[in-house]
Design a protein around this nucleic acid. Sequence first.
DNA 1: AAGTTCTTATTAC
DNA 2: CTAACGGTAATAAGAACTT
Length: 352
Amino acid sequence: MLKKTIVHIDMDYFFAQIEERENPWMKGKPVIVGADPKKGKGRGVVSTCNYLAREYKIKSGMAISRAYKLAPQGIFLPVNMPLYKKTSDSIFKTVKKVVPSSLIEKVSVDEAYIDITAITTNKKEALKIGGDLKKEIFKKEKLSCTVGISENKMISKIACQLAKPDGLKLIDKQEGRDIIKEMNIQTIPGIGPKTEKVIKELIKIENPTIKDALEIKKEELVRYLGKRGNDFYQKFRGIDASVVTETKEAKSVSKEHTFSKDTRSPDKIIKVFKGLVDDVLMEVKEGEIKNIVVVCRFEDFKTYQKQLSLDKINGGYNSIVKSSTILLLKFLVSSNKKIRLVGFRVGLKNKL
DNA sequence: AAGTTCTTATTAC
DNA sequence: CTAACGGTAATAAGAACTT
């Protein structure tokens, strides 16, 4: 019996798998979704790639130009988000047949946590539900996914990672505690490169595992990592008290754009920027906006933002366009470096 | 002194 | 040979500014 039954479902190499489904001739070749390196759009990164591409050491987040060097014979595709979104919606419809939306926490287009405690806490039955869900999704969308099951979100996610691709795996509490001991501390969600560095320096171990991290006192973690230290202390021990929470509306909406070539041409910059502002404002209701934020990344990759609360100015679209452009111009004036990226974001009211 | 706003840093997918 | 490094969103922490 499980205390709780938490399912983590994650589509396998989602974007690339959809592309393979749409274009079966691509199977058997490395498929890399990100951008086309040949059409001057070589500034992107890899969003997703299929497993064959991974054999060439291509990974998510890698510069597309580098991926191209690793596998120039690969199929490089731009991100076709409308298609992936549509597919995602269909998959979530299937998930909602298992439990109501209130028990589904959508992490991204291709990933979610599902609390099925109310249906079963029996391991066999839980695996049956997970397996059936995989079958349903495959029947409907011809896409494979992996399902991890455990008593909390963290371990079910780890189970999922271990079972990929096209897997189904249940790890109970005791097993979870043991398995993670030998793993790298970046296995813990929330610990990235920077946090790992802090922990390394704390315990003076070159390649620390979670077992090593168990030696650290809670107070030490809190002192060096703030309130997250508490969380990590628990998570090193396989404990994750966070609850599956229905996905709520966004608290902010943003658009950004990286120029294909760094520029200082105000014409180009302002034109692109106005487009971003228009796109964002089209997505939100006029009275909902709490503040606006303008983002600017210079050629040296240094990134800054300037923001303005809307209490001060009247919140009409026209005044927002005007104020945001003024903020943007401040960046132009503040430096004579070329600009790599501009972005625009609005924070929304009543979302807390 | 407390509350709000602004800015940067980090993480994740 | 070294640098390469998107877009969207959340959260934490600290500085700066108001009240």
